[in-house]
Design a protein around this nucleic acid. Sequence first.
DNA 1: GGTTGACCTCAACTTTGGTTCAGGTTAGAG
DNA 2: CTCTAACCTGAACCAAAGTTGAGGTCAACC
Lengths: 162, 162
Amino acid sequence: MEAPNPAVPWDRDELTVGDLAARSGVAVSALHFYERKGLITSRRTSGNQRRYRRETLRRVAFIRVSQRVGIPLADIGAALDTLPGDRTPTAKDWRRISQAWHDDLDARIEQLSRLRDHLTDCIGCGCLSLRRCALTNPHDELAEAGPGPRTLLVEGLEPDGA
Amino acid sequence: MEAPNPAVPWDRDELTVGDLAARSGVAVSALHFYERKGLITSRRTSGNQRRYRRETLRRVAFIRVSQRVGIPLADIGAALDTLPGDRTPTAKDWRRISQAWHDDLDARIEQLSRLRDHLTDCIGCGCLSLRRCALTNPHDELAEAGPGPRTLLVEGLEPDGA
DNA sequence: GGTTGACCTCAACTTTGGTTCAGGTTAGAG
DNA sequence: CTCTAACCTGAACCAAAGTTGAGGTCAACC
């Protein structure tokens, strides 16, 4: 039950790009792309074909989950760079780097909740054109992070209250 | 106090693209872009310059808020298309279309919350490569919507457990 | 030992949401 | 009437996250 069976692709200790694609659900072209970006690495055979360590499957899964969370690839790459290079990452390593996403998620959930709670009344009431609206206030924490427009909604406002 | 003063740009009943940009905080180039996409409209002067109705300010504010919520421009445009064309939209009209975003937000907040709650233990424990993980399960509601990868994490999985 | 599917690289193309630039026109203040 | 800021169009460019295609090589089954 413990001995790998080399006839079965997922039991070999190295994976071809096709194996990795099948196992991870990620297209071969995307894996090439991740490799160009330095998110994953491979050794090459004498015939210049890629061979991935099984561990890479873990990395790819982490990449996909992180993308689900909304993290850009560059940030995911930066996180992966903090994993130890000299040994296989442990569960603890993965826990550490996923903790950052957890905090990020917390922040974004809070942000979206506020947005949701102000949305209907703000759009409905007309305050969108006003200075005080929670959705347009540049000093609101809402402004700080997350995807979407970086500049705030209203920059040059009424010189005097409407 | 109610009579518009035409010497003041924001009191005129039509806005130039520059006025609209200043008042909405959106770049002129972006307004042109929105117009090409059909999200806003203008009449043209004899000299081919754009003139916007004041109402357009409301539309632009709606567009920006919607983008903050994470809605793509195409969807925003579709929502705007449901506004009455023959009269100025009322507060009720705006409330109706913002309600859709509210529901969308609810769904995405719920999604992100689940993601958050499973994230650390899933990434930490190794189940990312397994079939049952909430984060990788194609039949999970998580799969249904939101930005990020459309295809699920794992398509071709182990033929047998663990 | 040949055939075929999987692999290789590099370049070009896709979408979204714009910005920037060049070259030319208009509007309104003085 | 003139000057200048603001406006116009169209094309090119940007970033992210890949996909697609052309042209060529590798490997493994029979």
